[in-house]
């Protein structure tokens, strides 16, 4: 919005501050968007600038900048083996959660697009975990996965499949699998609903025509459904990558990185560095790197997918 408004600015006309120019459309438009622009600058851009400045400064534990520090914060970050491992973990977490979510959400969306009894109920139930906040979901899962009480362990023990409770969050492998599983489960509602919206916009004539031509389910799926929901898939993937990469509540509530940083991702490690340890300099450098990584990904992803969509359209 802001960019559009500024491009409308015509200095020649508005620089002369007279009642008639005040009444001109562009100026009135500008005045209308001014509050929004002011808030966006204050709430979005100011923190980014402050973080960027902090990442190049010596910062005390009250988060006050105490002079220029060059790239010392960044250098500290790249000599920190824990950071490098967590960066790799974060990429793994994002790829696993977004990848599996997308693969699972497509059949869910297809199923919800069929006309069956109780479809409205099924759709409503799928919304429930999405409507609850991520924090609440995470806390519920913390108890579901509890090593002593949990309903999972209780059920497995009653079925005599295990004779000792499994401490899901106790070792790095099971804890890592658990947070990825929860990440997937909370991402599915948004993804399947977006895909469902995409499916509903596919004209049914296409399927009827394909049926006449003798196409089976899979042929229709590969040649009609998938190409036509492609734009929606691009958007959900992009949004999911950004959300999941920055997803704080799930790893924080479930493990806080235990044992020994093995289930940390960048945001939880950043939070520990900044707010537990008071190391705002390296934390700000980490925040800037995260920002740049996601920015680069978003631009690259949009570029690649836009080109391909263009080719397909011809």
């Amino acid at each position: 919005m802001a960019v559009v408004g500024e491009s409308d600015l015509r200095p020649g006309r508005s620089s002369r501050w007279r009642p008639s120019s005040l009444r001109s459309e562009p100026v009135v438009g500008l005045l209308f968007i001014l509050p929004t622009v002011a808030f966006v600058v204050l709430i979005v851009f100011y923190p980014i600038v402050e973080t960027a400045l902090m990442s190049f400064s010596k910062v005390n534990s009250l988060a006050q900048r105490e002079g220029f520090a060059g790239v010392a914060n960044y250098r500290e970050l790249f000599s920190d083996t824990v950071f490098l491992r967590i960066l790799a973990q974060t990429v793994g977490w994002t790829v696993a959660v977004v990848g599996i979510t997308t693969v699972v959400a497509i059949p869910v969306a297809l199923a919800l697009n069929f006309n069956f009894r109780g479809r409205r109920l099924a759709r409503a139930l799928l919304i429930v975990p999405w409507a609850a906040s991520l924090m609440i979901n995470a806390i519920i899962w913390r108890w579901i996965l509890d090593g002593q009480y949990s309903i999972i362990n209780g059920t497995l023990m009653k079925l005599h499949l295990i004779d000792q409770p499994i401490i899901w969050l106790g070792s790095e492998q099971t804890a890592w699998a658990a947070i990825i599983l929860v990440g997937i489960l909370v991402s599915i509602p948004f993804t399947s609903f977006s895909l469902l919206a995409g499916l509903q916009s596919v004209p049914s004539e296409l399927y009827e025509a394909a049926l006449v031509d003798g196409a089976g389910f899979w042929t229709s799926f590969w040649h009609i459904t998938l190409p036509l929901i492609r734009p929606v898939l691009v958007v959900t993937t992009l949004l999911n990558v950004i959300y999941v990469f920055n997803s704080f509540p799930i790893p924080w509530v479930l493990t806080q990185g235990a044992p020994a940083y093995h289930t940390d991702i960048l945001v939880t490690y950043l939070y520990k560095r900044a707010f537990t340890e008071g190391q705002f300099g390296p934390a700000a450098a980490m925040a800037m790197l995260t920002f740049l990584l996601l920015l680069a990904f978003s631009l690259g992803f949009s570029h690649v997918t836009r080109e391909r969509t263009g080719v397909n359209a011809k």
Binding site: D146, G147, Q148, Q164, I167, L169, S171, Q256, A258
Partner: peptide, 21 residues
């Protein structure tokens, strides 16, 4: 102790003690 103590927080342990476990 419980096996794999890295799966337990202080809050959970307190609940377990109160519950008699």
């Amino acid at each position: 102790s419980e096996p794999k103590p890295t799966g337990f927080t202080r809050e959970q342990i307190i609940e377990n003690f109160k519950a008699g476990q």
